[in-house]
């Protein structure tokens, strides 16, 4: 399906943006939470793939319907890899690291089930200016 004009592209972007926001807000009851795991070389070397799997497993076991785990690129903060970003609707995204697979259980408990902040580990707050194009 080749995109043949700027208008078509812009229409496509609107569709994708709404799919993306649908993903965030959720088709289910309650709000959609997105967990982003940095899957760059640095992250993977530090065990991000295990964290990714552990998150999926944990969410599956707890039967959490409104949580989605997404792999993204390098978050830049190599010292704290593996990094997980928690995105909730109407909340400023928060980055946590290092989140290794063995603490995923508590991490989900605190951030998703209890809707709180993760107590152990380093809490990073994302406040850099990103250019909005």
């Amino acid at each position: 399906m080749a995109v043949k004009s700027l208008e078509e592209l812009r229409k496509l972007r609107k569709d994708y943006q709404s799919t993306l926001s649908l993903r965030k807000q959720g088709e289910h009851e309650g709000d959609q939470i997105e967990l982003r795991v940095g899957l760059g070389t640095c992250g993977i070397s530090a065990g991000a793939k295990d964290t990714f799997q552990a998150l999926l497993q944990e969410i599956d076991q707890r039967k959490l319907k409104n949580v989605k785990v997404v792999g993204v690129g390098c978050m830049g903060q190599c010292t704290s890899e593996p990094i997980v970003e928690v995105r909730k609707p109407d909340h400023e995204p928060l980055l946590y690291g290092p989140i290794t697979s063995n603490i995923v259980h508590d991490f989900i408990e605190d951030t998703v089930v209890n809707e709180d902040y993760y107590k152990d580990g380093t809490l990073l707050i994302k406040t850099y200016e990103k250019v909005e194009v």
């Binding site: 994708y16 993306l20 982003r36 792999g71 690129g73 390098c74 978050m75 970003e85 990073l124 850099y128």
Partner: peptide, 29 residues
């Protein structure tokens, strides 16, 4: 905890760590 990102301004890295690099729809969005 804020300092690491405070002084940064991301143009080249604008999508790094925020979109799924294996899904073109996120880039289009």
């Amino acid at each position: 905890h804020m300092d690491f990102y405070k002084k940064q301004f991301r143009i080249a890295l604008r999508n790094c760590g925020t979109i799924n690099p294996e899904d073109i729809s996120e880039y289009i969005a």
